[in-house]
Computed example of a mutant assay.
Amino acid sequence: MYILIAPDKFRGSLEASEVCQSVTEGIRKAYPDAEIVSIPLADGGEGTTRILTEQSKGKFITAIVHDPLGRYIEAEYGVSGDGTTAFIEMAAASGLSLLKPWEQNPLLTHTLGTGELIVHALNAGVKKIILGIGGSATTDAGFGMATALGYQFFDENNEMITPAGENLVRIRSIKTDGVDARIKQTNIVVACDVTNPLYGESGAAFVYGPQKGADKMMVSQLDHGLRNIAKVAAATFDEDISEVPGTGAAGGLGAGALWFLHATLQEGVGIVMEETHIEAHVKKADLVITGEGKVDEQTLSGKVVNGLASLCQSNHVPLAVVCGTLMITPDEAKKAGITYAVSVLNRPMSLQLAEAEAYSLVRDATFHLVRLFFHKHTR
């Protein structure tokens, strides 16, 4: 029997690779002769770079770049084993986690470091870049990133402007003469799971600005700045993309990726599944086991479990889901293509205890589900 293990992380307790180890132990207890393949997954957010780098047998590279406030830091990205693809998370250089709570201010932050990581990867000779844009500390529409790539931004007096969210409103023209020519020769794919437009009540500033330290006045100022750069960019590139779903992601970096990187925006889990060639393994599998910390309605709209369920349905392979919290009905599970779903909690317990015992809980739940699926072979 061929069993594919392909989970997301259990946030706060287990990384996806640790879930794979725990599930493997549970399978071995129930069915020692099973052929097991483990492919840790992610939805394009935190941890995606590590998973894709390790799955491609690649290496990690450290670069000195600017953090969201312009200080020098070390940031890591991955390069595939064949050297052709770079895996970059913008949060490594421009993430909210790099700032103390009192430093969070999207009027002052920028994505310069993300652009520097891209340049570093280009210098390494890659032909493709996969860019995850979750966890940003910025609302600069990729202004900083573009500056690192050679774009120049000028005010009404034709003076060059330095990157910062507060300076978006001052931009009157964008010069592209000095842009790194390798950008157009590189396939750049952005993992983007949100559908927000660039500006307005559903845009980057209003929806995500407060999470990055913006008060109501700052949100209004940032939204005005996003509207301004959209106007200037539309004139520069002969296209208004401000209403394209996802352009509001990561403080407008979704829009910046389209303008300045000529990138495509794709669902994160789809990118990860494509890069790990997971469909080929699904087609061979007798059972696929996945999981994440909580399975709820959100899980069924673009997350790892939903993406796998679609693949398993189309290939007529049963999908079992182990999770900490199970919040979908049997009808929802059936409609989503989930064959079997179970919470790993085996008794009343606190969240703290559940997180501490997550490894053994996942292992034991897996043992029982594999015994159920393959009872004829485990007698």
Rank of each mutant, 00 (worst) to 15 (best):
Y2T: 02
Y2G: 00
I5W: 03
P7H: 09
R11F: 08
L14C: 10
T24H: 05
R28H: 12
R28P: 00
Y31N: 02
A34I: 04
E35T: 14
S38T: 14
P40D: 02
A42T: 08
D43A: 06
G44N: 02
G45Y: 11
G45A: 12
R50S: 14
I51W: 08
T53P: 01
E54F: 11
E54A: 13
Q55I: 03
S56W: 05
K57R: 12
I61R: 05
A63Y: 08
A63H: 02
I64T: 14
V65T: 08
P68E: 04
P68R: 09
I73P: 02
I73G: 12
D82E: 11
A86M: 07
M90G: 06
L96C: 05
K100D: 10
K100H: 14
L107K: 00
T109Y: 13
T111F: 12
L117Q: 05
I118Q: 02
V119Y: 06
A124M: 13
K128C: 07
K128I: 05
I129S: 02
L131D: 01
G144K: 02
M145W: 04
A148F: 10
A148Y: 09
L149S: 05
F154Y: 15
P163F: 09
E166N: 09
E166T: 05
N167C: 09
K175M: 08
K175Q: 13
D180K: 03
D180F: 12
D180V: 10
D180Q: 05
T186V: 11
T186Q: 07
A191K: 00
V194L: 06
V194Y: 06
S202I: 02
A205F: 13
F206Q: 06
F206R: 08
V207N: 05
P210K: 03
Q211R: 06
M217E: 13
S220V: 10
L222C: 07
L226P: 00
A233Q: 00
A233S: 15
E239I: 14
T247D: 02
G248I: 05
A249S: 10
G251V: 09
L253A: 13
G254H: 07
G256R: 03
L258R: 11
A263E: 02
T264G: 09
G268W: 10
V269W: 04
E275Y: 14
T276F: 11
H277S: 13
A285D: 01
D286E: 15
L287K: 03
T290P: 04
T290S: 15
G291T: 03
G293L: 11
G293F: 08
V295I: 15
E297F: 10
Q298G: 06
L300F: 10
V304R: 00
N306E: 12
A309K: 01
L311V: 06
C312S: 03
V322H: 04
V322W: 04
G324E: 08
L326P: 03
P330R: 05
E332F: 10
K335P: 00
Y340W: 15
A341D: 01
S343G: 03
L345R: 01
L345M: 12
L351F: 14
A358W: 07
F367P: 00
